[in-house]
Each structure stands twice: as structure tokens, then as C-alpha cells.
Amino acid sequence: ISALNTALVRVVKNSNTLGIAIEGGANTRQPLPRIVTIQKGGSAHNCGQLKVGQVILEVNGISLRGQEHEEAARIIAEAFKTKEKDHIDFLVAELG
């Protein structure tokens, strides 16, 4: 990934849903998952820093590079479900 501005976004689990839709994953034309929708009222929306179009590079320090779509979605879902943390740290890239 060329020079991008990346940001570390902390999403606090302040509602019972995360509420994001992602597209892509390894072996697709969108090799890293990109946020395509953010659901109002979900924790992602409430945090206010995640935006449609951002590409998710890491989740809690776990790189999504090379992860197929289902696996990437599972990693994000597990990060939201786990009781070990009250937040999720997303490393996102802002394209363009």
C-alpha cells in the first residue's frame, strides 16, 4: 500500500451492535476489507471516526492482510464479541 494516511480508531463498545458492512478481502479486487456502510446507533457510528470508504488494515493489532472475506469479517466480529476488551482498535487507511 503506497503512502496513505492511516489512523488508529478506537471504537468503544457502547451499544450492543458494532454495525459496519465491509466489502472485499484476499483474492478479490478489494484485497483489504473496506467499510461500505455504517449503521446508525451502532458502536462504530457512535464513535464518529470510522467512515465509509476507509480500508481496515488491522483489528486489535491483527493484520487483515491475506485474510479472505469471511475470515476478516469473523476476526472483526470476534473482536466485538470478546468480553476481554471494552473497545476495538482499528488501524484504517484513508484512500484518496
Partner: peptide
């Protein structure tokens, strides 16, 4: 010419 599939999977993560 190897062409990447154009479809892209989309999933909701609730």
C-alpha cells in the same frame, strides 16, 4: 489475460 473476478463479497458485522 488473467482477470480478477469483479464481484466483491460484502458482509454485515453486527
Amino acid at each position: 489475460l488473467f482477470v480478477e473476478p469483479q464481484w466483491v463479497p460484502v458482509s454485515w458485522v453486527y
